[in-house]
């Protein structure tokens, strides 16, 4: 099972009042089978437009959009409907049918496909509801559920036709932080157990950090930066990415510069990843090179399953250059923020 999604120089503009307003310009991206791919951007960046292209709820106005190598913009109606059954989608506002019970909502895509008998449908619905932990709510109506439960119904419904791709448009933005975490855990579990490719858009860094493998940062209809989440967020290059990182860490760069002004010595940022996070590298190097350090700012956390640490240090005395070289040879990343 391989389901690669490729955007090749994709353009999309909307016609508003007789004028074409570009929403996406020149998107080039490849989403790999089985990964959780995040897209982050501020409101109006074009995230929803981008994700809705994948099942052609919106049509690109230029470029090629390949799924498993086939340009889906050339599909006829039947092929498009068949494609859509292989792509599940969940939404910020759930979009469940209020007139149907939980079970009937989950059964709906199966009935539309019309391939399963009644008994097969019922069995599949029971299996899906069990997976999302809602078995005892099968005969309730959506209005009787909490937001988190509604999104679980949305997920069960999206999985009903055994899709290879799951699209999530701000799927957790209407939920509180705790419910968000539980829904994200469910998505990660589904990704792991079913090998489903998940494309997820959000404006929240934490969502990306919690479950995504790779991320693309969108700004003004363009991908300004993309790559593995740890690379992008630990070493942001584009101003938009930097802002996202700072916002999520509650850091104000200007304030920080003021604070550091009185601190003597060289200021560096040190990034540890993986097992190195828990090694006593800092103390060892300081001792060996005779440098003193003070920690100005720092954070030890995880990106998906990878622990990392990022410390801002002021180094004084001893052989600072040797210390920096040692850090690098130990596999840490060193960025100079201020020379002595």
């Amino acid at each position: 099972m391989t389901t690669t999604i490729q955007f090749k120089n994709i353009h999309k503009s909307y016609r508003v009042g007789g004028r074409d307003i570009p929403a996406l310009s020149g998107i080039d991206l490849t989403i790999n089978p089985g990964e959780i791919f995040g897209m982050i951007g501020h409101s109006g960046a074009g995230k929803s437009t981008l994700v809705r292209l994948i099942n052609l709820l919106e049509r690109p106005t230029g470029g090629e959009l390949l799924i498993d190598g086939a340009d889906i913009t050339r599909f006829d109606n039947d092929a498009l409907r068949a494609l859509r059954r292989r792509i599940g989608m969940i939404f910020q506002h759930f979009n469940l049918l209020s007139s149907k019970t939980v079970a009937d909502n989950v059964a709906f895509p199966l009935r539309l496909a019309g391939k399963k008998s009644r008994a097969e449908t019922d069995a599949r619905v029971a299996e899906l509801l069990a997976r999302v932990g809602l078995s005892e709510h099968a005969s309730k109506y959506p209005s009787q559920l909490s937001g988190g439960q509604k999104q679980r119904v949305g997920i069960a419904r999206a999985l009903a036709t055994e899709p290879k791709i799951l699209l999530c448009d701000e799927a957790t933005s209407a939920l509180d932080p705790q419910t968000t975490q539980s829904v994200l855990r469910l998505l990660a579990e589904i990704n792991r157990e079913l090998g489903l490719t998940i494309v997820l858009i959000t404006h929240e860094m934490d969502v990306i950090r919690t479950i995504c493998d790779r991320v693309a940062v969108l700004d003004g209809g363009k991908v300004v930066e993309h790559g593995p989440v740890a690379d992008v967020f630990l070493h942001p290059k584009h101003i938009t990415t930097k802002r996202f990182v700072q916002e999520s860490e509650h850091v104000d760069e200007n304030e920080q510069d003021d604070d550091f002004a009185h601190v003597p010595g060289r200021i560096i940022r040190l990034t540890f990843r993986g097992e190195a996070t828990y090694e006593p590298v800092l103390g060892k190097v300081a001792r060996d090179c005779g440098v003193d350090f003070s920690i100005l700012a720092g954070r030890i956390d995880r990106i998906k399953d990878t622990p990392y640490g990022q410390l801002t240090l002021a180094l004084t005395g001893g052989d600072v250059d040797a210390a920096l070289a040692r850090f690098e040879s130990e596999g840490l990343t060193v960025e100079a923020l201020r020379d002595a």
């Binding site: 099942n55 709820l57 498009l80 409907r81 068949a82 494609l83 859509r84 059954r85 792509i87 989608m89 939404f91 506002h93 979009n95 469940l96 049918l97 709906f108 895509p109 539309l112 496909a113 036709t161």
Partner: peptide
């Protein structure tokens, strides 16, 4: 009827009649 519901149904591969 919420547009989102129509879109969700479309996204399941429904025909206009469905």
């Amino acid at each position: 009827v919420d547009r989102g519901i129509i879109e969700a149904t479309q996204a399941m591969g429904a025909t206009t009649r469905q």
